[in-house]
Design a protein around this nucleic acid. Structure first.
Length: 272
DNA sequence: AATCCCCTCAACCGCTCTCAT
DNA sequence: GATGAGAGCGGTTGAGGGGAT
């Protein structure tokens, strides 16, 4: 039958988002929440399709996004999960609060896959590479099916020595739960926690306590990380971080500052 | 300094899934 | 059960940055 396009593409803007567009979208969502993506661009005054807005929010603007490179532990976990779930990036991403499926997919395709190949391992089976990529792709579906039934659970530490699978002890540490029902729960919990901490309504209207601070001018950070902070640090963020986040939208939208931020404020580093 | 090439990742496309009617 | 609309997902693309020559 052929579906209607998700939006009328005539007159709609495409390509990279501007800071102004980001502002509009973020302000709209924070003030109104998300009810129907299709209507978001119109109501927010954006010349974008709803799909594009959704993607931008999920992959870039969400306040609970974790920025910065993947840790070795995260990479290991991605490999484990991928060996079980295949290319189901959203499922994989659900095990990494603050990470997006797009981010993980990109990381897999550009880094992990290559590294595994260099190690002579098939990225999908984690076995010594004997097959062509095509046959691996074919296997992708099969492995994930098998794993879905809970038959297989693999692990690999490619940062360690070489091609050797992890010891069982390490496996224990990094145990992953496969229950699909749990997948969304983690994200939901994060989001709920975030919302409860933020009290969006009140802080949006709150008077700015600190100027668009020097603290913020060099900062962007994951709110998620605050749970890993010491008591003092944590309370500091609960009181200040969100306001700063809103105040400093411009600088926060420039995630390039992330690395330097970690130098200035070591406690912002991702902790495992 | 200029050019080329490769890599990364944000964004798009098209398909499937889910839910309401 | 059939249909349609919206949301979500995964594959792919291409702009831009950075390193190599």
């Amino acid at each position: 039958m052929g579906r209607q396009p998700c939006c009328d593409k005539v007159g709609l803007k495409r390509g990279p988002w501007t800071i102004e567009e980001d502002h509009k979208l973020m302000n709209f969502i924070l003030n109104n929440g998300i009810h129907c993506w299709r209507t978001v661009p119109k109501l927010a005054g954006l010349l974008r399709c709803g799909k594009s807005c959704r993607l931008r929010w999920i992959n870039y603007l969400r306040p609970d996004l974790k920025r910065g490179g993947f840790t070795e532990m995260e990479e290991d976990q991605i490999i484990q999960l991928h060996s079980c779930l295949g290319n189901r990036w959203s499922k994989i991403a659900s095990h990494f609060p603050g990470r997006t499926d797009n981010e993980i997919k990109n990381h897999w395709n550009t880094k992990i896959k290559k590294r595994l190949k260099l190690l002579g391992l098939d990225p999908l089976t984690l076995k010594p590479n004997e097959q062509t990529e095509e046959s691996s792709d074919e296997k992708n579906k099969n492995t994930s099916k098998v794993c879905e039934q809970g038959v297989e659970n693999k692990s690999l530490d490619m940062h360690d020595t070489k091609e050797v699978p992890k010891t069982e002890g390490k496996m224990e540490e990094k145990k992953v739960t496969w229950d699909d029902d749990d997948d969304t729960i983690g994200l939901l919990n994060n989001y709920e926690m975030l919302c409860s901490q933020l009290d969006l309504g009140s802080w949006m209207s709150q008077e700015t306590k600190t100027s668009t601070s020097s603290y913020c001018s060099s900062s962007s950070f994951s709110l998620d990380d605050s749970s890993n902070l010491s008591v003092d640090e944590s309370s500091y963020f609960q009181e200040n971080s969100l306001q700063q986040w809103v105040d400093g939208l411009d600088c926060i939208l420039s995630w390039d500052n992330f690395n330097s931020l970690e130098k200035d404020f070591p406690f912002l580093e991702y902790k495992q």
